[in-house]
Design a protein around this nucleic acid. Structure first.
Length: 821
RNA sequence: GCCGAUGUGGCGAAAUUGGUAGACGCACCAGACUCAAAAUCUGGCGUGGUUCACCCCACGUGCCGGUUCGACUCCGGCCAUCGGCACCA
């Protein structure tokens, strides 16, 4: 029996206890059903759940439950992205232990997640900061190392003074640290990198395979990879035998217009290229460049500066002698670090040449060309010897080919993507499993010695050193190769390493012999639906795609892309701006659970906007959803004794009212199923819930005219349709019919195509495209009949009275348009 | 500058293929129930005009133009907002 009134807390508590005990959402690896992998981006255990989490996990949960009802074997796991700076900062600021701090947070948030009613298989929970997980992160690092995909090199790297660590390129946003927003500087350090650039082309090309990803994310990744095709051209230095300067250019067609060359201040041969007279000025210029921050240097508004080195190059095409300059508009880490300057056809070179009164030669002509101003269009060549008159695009290839044939050039594809810097000078991460031996050099830790455990005897407060270096027990070890005294690497790995493979681990989460079983990972992956925030469009999603390809090449798995479909949810806003503690506009999920229950929270977070768009949280909106939940409850409470569970219903022998009502139920099944399957449009799903509920209320208005078989069918269908969203309420109501089975194990309702439409239609009658009349008519009439009905309309007759009919257009079941003159 | 997304009532939004623009909800207004309030139920709700009123007429999906019997939807050209990339040669 249902209680008289709806008490969310009581019902939800009851079912949470039952689910905890019975584990109804445990995934069976051996099921014969087709698999479906529904995945949410796992949370960082920051302390408490926020509404963004609620939105993310509700979305994935509803998808998981819907697919389960459709007969899929669903994997819906959850875990914790639990290494990272906030834990360590808590340790520094409040003297907490990062491990305790993290595990306490996980404990609390896990409880909150469970209260949301997620159908997660908690037996597959992964926690990246625990040794049973990071052992395998370390092992995977070593696989990449052995494959030559992880290497150590000294390079100018991004350094955040505030976080006291280096950062990957992807973690520098507009010259600032992604985490603390302070300015990033360059430091020359020896660091570990992963060779993501080896996959540049595949990462770009395979974006085309990702039909289930939004254009926005794919474009961001394509921009980030930044492919450009061009050529390397080599210029001999006049003053120095055996020295050449190679440049990268996408406009080889303009090579006859080169009037000078520019090298970056950090260019490797710059000292060689500087003559004694220019030494002082060049040194001064380079020192100034060093002082500039990334932000200043990258500003496009800055006036271009530079100084000549004193040496010259010989243009192999023209024989022309051109000076070499140093200027910071050339970037050391793109192309070759040197640029051939063609002032007439490049805006930057033009500006620079004008300022320093360097010569210009026009070599391209075409539409819109104006004497004395920069022309960057691709027209045809002039002043270019035998290439004159040629189309610029063709000339680009012809000139490169000529350079190649004569040994001073080649075709070259250039990417903007850089290798992924993964070392961090911080404590709370997976230690890099490498040992430095005085005899053998860099040596990998052996598999049997994994994991390399994080030391506990560390001091977080010492400035200028990584906390791990303060451990007395960690550093010293013996070389796995020769047994000599050796030192461990004291850096840890970027947390994005941990999150690049967690979704694979879920396929075999408890395996202590392997990172995952190959058959299981191949069975469950790729992920069928991945849901999470847009902020990972480049970082996590690009790294994970790279990891998948790299692990494939290590022989660990057999697929090319990890995530077939990606839904990037919008932000949760309140009063028009993102919820944040500093703005004081946050809403605490615990409070919502307490006041309205998790079902109402789930309903509301899905109701007002489609998932990809931002969602505006309003108190009135929650209130409205709570009213709906109560409205549904009252309906079942009132008719609970009249419901017949066997609702297989024949349409024949029904009167008009019952038939139309039955049709509206079929229409609802059809619409809801379609809207979930297409783009997860839960906002319209929920409006269909409301429409069906409204029509049930309409149907039961006249209590003497209720056919209880028909009503049972409608109510039970409604109950099943709302069950993926209102998980507790539907279970409570269903169990009140003395069923032993959970509603969440019952199949999704089917609709009858013949019944999923109305028996009568509103025929729209237009004259010359303007609506003149609306006529109720039987459905499925022939075109002739519809035309006849339309012409009988008095309003139509008036409108066409003194005119001739040119033609009549009939759209079956919809409209008739009479065209007159 | 290049690339991508978005633009519809007071608000969130809807409109499978070109075929009733504004479903569903929030807010608001009016009414029923009540001694009263809450809850609940019923009705109204794009703009302007006309009418005592139901009716009716015109306009209306960022702007301008086009295709079509018919355009939120297709095409061309703009504008605005948000996001990504960018002295990348």
């Amino acid at each position: 029996m249902l209680e008289k009134e709806y008490f969310a807390q009581k019902i939800e508590k009851k079912w949470l206890d039952i689910w905890e005990e019975k584990k109804p959402y445990k995934t069976d690896d051996d099921s014969k059903k087709p698999k479906y992998y529904a995945l949410s981006m796992f949370p960082y255990p920051s302390g408490k759940l926020h509404m963004g989490h609620v939105r993310n996990y509700t979305l994935t949960d509803v998808v998981a439950r819907f697919k389960r009802a459709q007969g899929y074997n669903v994997l819906h796991p959850m875990g914790w992205d639990s290494f990272g700076l906030p834990a360590e900062n808590a340790a520094i600021q409040h003297g907490a232990n990062p491990k305790t701090w993290t595990l306490d947070n996980i404990n609390y948030m896990k409880k909150q997640l469970k209260m949301l009613g997620l159908s997660v298989d908690w037996d597959r929970e992964v926690t990246t900061c625990l040794p049973d997980y990071y052992k395998w992160t370390q092992w995977l690092f070593l696989q990449l190392y052995k494959k030559g995909l992880a290497y150590k090199k000294t390079a100018p790297v991004n350094w955040c003074e505030n976080c006291a660590t280096v950062l990957a390129n992807e973690q520098v946003i507009d010259g600032k640290c992604w985490r603390c927003n302070s300015e990033v500087t360059k430091k020359n350090l020896s660091q570990w990198f992963l060779k993501i650039t080896q996959y540049s082309d595949e990462l770009l090309k395979d974006l085309d395979l990702l039909k289930g990803w939004g254009e926005n994310v794919k474009t961001m990744q394509a921009n980030w990879i930044g492919k450009s095709t061009g050529a390397i051209l080599k210029f001999k230095v006049k003053e120095l035998d055996n020295v050449e300067i190679p440049v990268y250019t996408t406009r080889a067609d303009t090579v006859y217009g080169v009037t000078y060359l520019v090298v970056a201040p950090e260019y490797k041969d710059i000292e060689l290229l500087t003559t004694d007279e220019n030494k002082k000025a060049v040194e001064e210029y380079r020192n100034n460049a060093k002082k500039l921050s990334e932000i200043e240097r990258l500003s496009t508004e800055r006036v271009k500066t530079g100084v000549p080195l004193g040496t010259h190059i010989i243009n192999p095409f023209t024989g022309r002698i051109c000076p070499v300059w140093v200027a910071d508009y050339a970037l050391v880490d793109y192309g070759t670090g040197a640029v051939m300057a063609v002032p007439y056809h490049d805006e930057r070179d033009f500006e620079f040449a004008k300022k320093y009164k360097l010569p210009m030669t026009q070599v391209i002509d075409g539409e819109g060309f104006k004497e004395g101003s920069c022309y960057i269009e691709k027209g045809h060549l002039v002043n270019s010897d035998k290439f004159s008159g040629m189309d610029a695009t063709k000339a680009r290839d012809a000139i490169t080919q000529y350079a190649k044939d004569n040994g001073f050039g080649e075709f070259k594809t250039q990417y903007r993507l850089r290798d992924w810097l993964i070392s961090r000078q911080r404590y709370w991460g997976a230690p890099i499993p490498i040992v430095y031996c005085p005899n053998c050099g860099e040596v990998a830790v052996e598999d049997k010695d994994l994991p390399v455990l994080l030391p506990e005897d560390v001091d977080f407060t010492q400035k200028g050193v990584s906390p791990i270096e303060t451990s007395k027990t960690f550093r010293e070890t013996i070389c796995p190769k020769c047994g000599a005294k050796a030192l461990r690497d004291t850096d840890t790995m970027d947390t994005f390493m941990c999150s690049s493979w967690y979704y694979m681990r879920y396929s075999d989460a408890k395996n202590d012999k392997e990172c995952f079983n190959k058959d299981l990972v191949n069975k469950w992956l790729p992920v069928d639906q991945y849901i999470g925030g847009i902020e990972h469009a480049i970082l996590h999603l690009l790294y994970s795609r790279f990891f998948t390809k790299a692990l494939r090449d290590c022989g660990l798995l057999d697929f090319d892309e990890p995530f077939n479909n990606l839904l990037t949810q919008g932000m949760v806003l309140k009063d028009g701006s993102k919820m944040s503690k500093s703005k004081g506009n946050t809403v605490d999920p615990d409070e919502i659970y307490q006041n309205y229950g998790a079902d109402t929270a789930r309903l509301f977070i899905l109701s007002d906007s489609p998932p990809a768009r931002d969602f505006d949280w309003t108190d009135a909106g929650v209130e409205g959803c709570y009213k709906f939940v109560n409205r549904v409850y009252r309906l079942f409470e009132k008719f609970q004794n009249k419901i017949n569970l066997n609702y297989n219903l024949e349409i024949c022998n029904l009167n008009k009212k019952d038939e139309d009502f039955t049709r509206s139920v079929h229409i609802a099944i059809k619409k809801i199923t379609y809207d979930i399957e297409h783009e997860f449009q839960f906002n319209t799903v929920i409006s269909a819930y409301r429409e069906l509920t409204n029509s049930i209320y309409e149907y039961v208005k006249d209590e003497n005219a209720i056919n209880y078989k028909v009503l049972s069918f409608a109510l039970l269908t409604l109950l099943k349709l709302i069950s993926p969203v209102l998980v507790f309420l539907s279970e409570e109501i269903y169990s009140s019919f003395n069923t032993t089975e959970s509603i969440h194990n019952t199949p999704w309702p089917k609709f009858d195509e013949k019944l999923a439409k109305t028996s009568s239609i509103t025929l729209i009658v237009q004259v010359n495209g303007k609506i003149k009349d609306k006529i109720e008519a039987e459905a499925d009439l022939s075109n002739d009949e519809l035309e006849k009905i339309a012409k009988e309309s008095i309003k139509v007759k008036e409108a066409i009275m003194d005119k001739t009919i040119v033609k009549v257009i009939v759209v079956p079941n919809k409209l008739v348009n009479i065209v007159v003159k």
